[in-house]
Simulated assay, not measured.
Amino acid sequence: MNTVTLKQNLIKFQSIIALAAMCIALSLLSDRFLTPENTWNVMRQISVNVIISVGMTLVILTGGIDLSVGSILALAGAVTAGMLKFGAEFTDANLYIGFTLLGALIGGTLTGTLLGWFNGFTITRFKVPPFVATLAMLTIARGLTMLWTGGFPITGLGDNMAFIGTGWLLGIPMPVWISAIIVLAAVVLTNQTMLGRHIYAIGGNETAARLSGLKIKRIKTIVYSIAGALAGIGGIIVTSRLDSAQPNAGFGFELDSIAAVVIGGTSLSGGKGTIMGTVQGALIIGILNNGLVLLNVSPFWQQVIKGFVILLAVVIEKFNSKEE
């Protein structure tokens, strides 16, 4: 194997190498790291980030960014909890509508989808930069969450709702099943469908994609809608796991999501990256968080370390791009 081939393989498998090195180091530093209980704990913890990061990957592949996923997650979770517990009451018409669990889940997911669609509509129709449009949605969705909940948690959602976030099926936690199904669907979408090829084409060269006849606005709107829907599903899982819809849920989730995507090798300029790379990035972030907790590292230092890891990942990505 020559030097060029070795360098290409190191670049290709850098996420896996980093993940393996981290696992080895943490297993030596803490005897609690490789226990079955901690392994499933890590898998449960990263499930929501994996789901959100799948949507973020699609957005970044088009050359965009979505800073609103944490707030959309909070609002979707609150809407789900509110529909399930309180239903909808129309006092003027003397009408009350109750919702089943399925109805509430659909309502929460549609809430995320609608907000994601609005992001895409704003970006494509009014030419608002994605950073600005989604930053505005971050504030809008957080404000709507506070209005919906009155600033107080919505609790006592029942055992059926709790099963989504805390239950087990065939010896595997439900959040892991949900995230695995979403990852599989996203892999098929990006690798086997026309939409997936168009997403890569737009991120690679939007001008060429437009001249080729691709409907850029429609595709971007679909991508942001998917990202919103996945944030909504993440919100449902978080709400289920806590048995409570917290008004401040989702703070910082956009940072972990972007970190997973970048660490997984997706280019911030778009057109390059994979879903499985993002899963590896989410694993690295999750294991890093878990390991720092096991080692009793201060939460403040955890943020510092995580920030440096993200910065290092971006620097490596830029360096690799120049090498190619």
Rank of each mutant, 00 (worst) to 15 (best):
G103K: 06
G150N: 05
L29Y: 12
A259K: 02
S269F: 07
I305D: 08
Q45Y: 09
G63T: 07
N49T: 13
I216Q: 01
L26C: 14
L26V: 10
T3S: 11
L102T: 07
Q302N: 10
V297C: 09
L95K: 06
G291V: 08
G204S: 12
F251N: 09
F319W: 13
T145P: 08
C23Y: 08
M22D: 09
I123P: 03
S212H: 01
Q14Y: 05
E37P: 02
L102N: 01
L214Y: 05
G165P: 02
L195T: 12
L268F: 06
A78S: 15
A141W: 08
G143I: 06
P175T: 07
N38A: 15
F99I: 04
R197Y: 08
R197N: 04
T57F: 04
L10D: 10
I216K: 02
A249W: 01
M83K: 08
M137R: 10
F99S: 05
F126Q: 11
M137N: 12
I65M: 10
A133Y: 02
M276C: 02
L110Q: 04
L157Y: 07
M194L: 06
L144A: 07
W301V: 13
L102V: 05
F253P: 00
N38T: 14
M22L: 15
L115P: 03
F319I: 12
A81M: 11
S244V: 00
Y224P: 00
A21F: 12
S244W: 01
G271V: 07
I106M: 05
T134R: 07
G281L: 11
V223T: 03
C23R: 10
S212G: 04
L75F: 15
M137Y: 06
G171D: 08
N2F: 06
I263F: 02
V293M: 14
V304D: 13
I263M: 00
A180F: 14
N289V: 05
N205Y: 02
G277C: 02
V187A: 10
G55S: 07
I219G: 00
K12G: 10
R32V: 09
I305S: 12
A201F: 03
P247D: 04
L135M: 14
G232Y: 03
G98L: 06
S71Y: 11
K7C: 01
G204V: 03
I60N: 08
R142F: 10
E324N: 15
I237H: 03
S30C: 14
F253E: 00
F253C: 00
V293A: 03
I182D: 12
Y200T: 06
F308N: 13
S269A: 11
G264H: 03
V132N: 08
P299Q: 04
G270Y: 03
V69Q: 09
A25G: 06
A21I: 14
S30D: 15
G277K: 01
